[in-house]
Computed example of a mutant assay.
Amino acid sequence: MRVPANAEFMYLSGSGASPMEDGTWGDMAQQTRDTFNGFKEKLEAEGWSMSDIIQVRAFAVSDDNDFLDFDGFNTAYREFFGTEENPMKPVRSFVEIEDLVVGGWLIEIEVRAARVP
């Protein structure tokens, strides 16, 4: 991916899902969807959009059954990127780690966005 020299950047640090009404966190797809919805709200509040995202880094843990649900991540990811509304497909990394700071999180995501003013 190439970014013009005169681009401005926005970095959104590691974020994860919010607990659902029943206190649970949901599966990987739900948590990924919730996290990207949070990024969407933050970007739009600043006048940016999801199509400005150029990089996604995801740190994931296995569930209680030692299952790392990469398909669940991809299912939710494809709702935001490579769509008719947002054809952008940012570069991305998906890394399995041992644990995350927030109990219940299966995924923590950070993004980098760029645009020419």
Rank of each mutant, 00 (worst) to 15 (best):
residue 45 A to L: 08
residue 104 G to M: 02
residue 102 V to C: 01
residue 52 D to V: 01
residue 85 E to G: 07
residue 89 K to Q: 09
residue 26 G to M: 13
residue 33 R to F: 10
residue 25 W to D: 02
residue 22 D to V: 14
residue 12 L to R: 02
residue 28 M to V: 10
residue 53 I to V: 15
residue 43 L to D: 02
residue 43 L to A: 13
residue 59 F to E: 13
residue 80 F to S: 00
residue 80 F to M: 10
residue 91 V to D: 15
residue 50 M to H: 00
residue 19 P to A: 13
residue 69 D to Y: 01
residue 51 S to V: 07
residue 55 Q to H: 05
residue 67 F to T: 12
residue 68 L to G: 08
residue 91 V to G: 12
residue 64 D to E: 13
residue 53 I to H: 03
residue 76 A to C: 02
residue 105 W to E: 07
residue 77 Y to A: 06
residue 56 V to H: 03
residue 41 E to A: 14
residue 25 W to N: 08
residue 91 V to W: 02
residue 30 Q to M: 14
residue 106 L to M: 14
residue 16 G to W: 02
residue 25 W to R: 01
residue 17 A to H: 00
residue 56 V to G: 08
residue 46 E to H: 09
residue 106 L to W: 05
residue 91 V to C: 04
residue 84 E to F: 06
residue 81 F to D: 06
residue 38 G to N: 13
residue 26 G to V: 13
residue 102 V to Y: 01
residue 98 E to H: 13
residue 14 G to V: 10
residue 107 I to Q: 08
residue 25 W to G: 11
residue 31 Q to D: 06
residue 105 W to T: 04
residue 38 G to W: 03
residue 76 A to T: 03
residue 11 Y to Q: 14
residue 92 R to M: 13
residue 52 D to I: 06
residue 27 D to N: 15
residue 86 N to V: 15
residue 53 I to Q: 12
residue 38 G to F: 09
residue 105 W to R: 05
residue 20 M to K: 15
residue 88 M to D: 12
residue 56 V to Q: 00
residue 24 T to L: 14
residue 65 N to M: 10
residue 13 S to K: 10
residue 92 R to K: 13
residue 19 P to W: 03
residue 86 N to F: 05
residue 69 D to K: 03
residue 10 M to F: 09
residue 13 S to Q: 13
residue 49 S to N: 12
residue 68 L to C: 08
residue 20 M to P: 02
residue 76 A to W: 01
residue 65 N to W: 02
residue 54 I to L: 09
residue 43 L to Q: 09
residue 83 T to Q: 05
residue 20 M to F: 00
residue 100 L to V: 11
residue 62 S to H: 04
residue 29 A to V: 00
residue 57 R to L: 10
residue 38 G to H: 05
residue 87 P to T: 09
residue 67 F to Q: 11
residue 74 N to Q: 10
residue 10 M to P: 00
residue 45 A to C: 04
residue 106 L to D: 09
residue 43 L to E: 06
residue 77 Y to S: 00
residue 76 A to D: 06
residue 92 R to P: 01
residue 76 A to H: 01
residue 53 I to Y: 07
residue 23 G to R: 05
residue 53 I to N: 02
residue 101 V to H: 13
residue 70 F to T: 14
residue 15 S to P: 03
residue 50 M to Y: 00
residue 19 P to H: 04
residue 87 P to I: 06
residue 90 P to Q: 04
residue 59 F to P: 01
residue 87 P to A: 07
residue 74 N to P: 00
residue 42 K to S: 15
residue 81 F to Q: 01
